[in-house]
């Protein structure tokens, strides 16, 4: 279980994340939603140790994450950010093999290789594993990075806007894979999402942030209704039910 306790982050004098407390339930997909600048990515970065919090703490089970050794932490929690700019030219397989670094320190054992094969297979990348990343489309590259995270085999998988720059088909593909990670492999996924409908359709729980604070939190159905959405986005958003999914029709609301 991940517990965020009274966490704050200041950029200059402005609190980007303001005294946030949240508990992440295991075995579920939790989405962070909210308007731009709400502090979603900053919160995720602090949970994943990419960024140090100014005050407050994050507990993994019962331990403060700052006290956990880097490589032990990397075996429990993985994070995938939106920008993956690299100087080096890697093949898909090389990238995915890096996912085993916390275990192998660069020398892959038989077991590591098995994990890499499985991850490639899981993401349908086995056939193209020797292609270079810079030759791939955005969706393929995103899948390769997710495969790396799968090979890392952590209980918690954190993703920061993984659907950015992806078309509809690939977005759906990625979300289905994340669902499978939770349902089949028992992982816990935390994801920052821009598109409220992807959050509604695929996540179990939603944490809504606004101006650095948690404004709503709970099971998806408690959040995806016009009342709650009005508080989060300052918009009147009608919610329609389609094949058991709640869809927010925000395109012509005001």
């Amino acid at each position: 279980m991940i517990q965020v306790k009274e966490l704050s982050k200041f950029f200059g004098k402005k609190a980007v994340v303001d005294n946030v407390s949240v508990t992440i339930e295991t075995g579920k997909i939790t989405s962070f939603i909210g308007p731009n600048g709400a502090g979603k990515s900053t919160l995720l970065s602090m949970v994943s140790r990419l960024l140090n919090a100014d005050t407050g703490e994050v507990l993994l089970d019962t331990n403060d994450i700052r006290r956990i050794k880097s490589d032990d932490f990397a075996k429990r929690v993985s994070i995938l950010k939106q920008s993956n700019f690299m100087n080096v030219r890697l093949t898909i397989r090389e990238l995915v093999s890096f996912g085993r670094y916390p275990y192998s320190k660069g020398r892959l054992s038989e077991e590591d290789i098995k994990f890499v094969d499985q991850a490639l297979d899981y993401m349908n990348l086995t056939d193209m594993q020797d292609q270079f990343l810079d030759e791939l489309s955005g969706g393929q590259r995103q899948r390769a990075f997710i495969a790396m995270v799968i090979a890392q085999d952590t209980d918690y998988v954190l993703l920061d806007e993984p659907l950015n720059n992806l078309d509809m088909k690939h977005s759906v593909q990625i979300m289905k894979i994340l669902r499978k990670l939770v349902d089949e492999l028992g992982k816990t996924v935390i994801i920052v999402l821009h598109d409220i409908n992807f959050a509604s359709v695929y996540s179990d729980r939603i944490v809504a942030l606004k101006d650095g604070r948690v404004i709503k939190e709970g099971p998806t159905n408690d959040i995806i209704n016009s009342d709650a959405l009005k508080q989060i986005y300052d918009m009147d958003i009608p919610v329609q039910e389609q094949n058991g999914c709640r869809i927010c029709v925000y395109f012509n609301s005001h």
Binding site: S48, R49, L50, S70, D71, D72, F73, A74, K75, S78, I79, L80, K81, S83, N84, F85, M86, N87, V88, L95, F98, G99, Y101, P102, K105, G106, R107, V149, Q152
Partner: peptide, 19 residues
């Protein structure tokens, strides 16, 4: 050496992988 290899994936990936 191997930490530097991971480092070439960028800061965020490097931290993610436990460097």
């Amino acid at each position: 050496m191997s930490q530097l290899d991971v480092m070439s994936l960028g800061r965020e990936n490097a931290i993610n992988l436990g460097v």
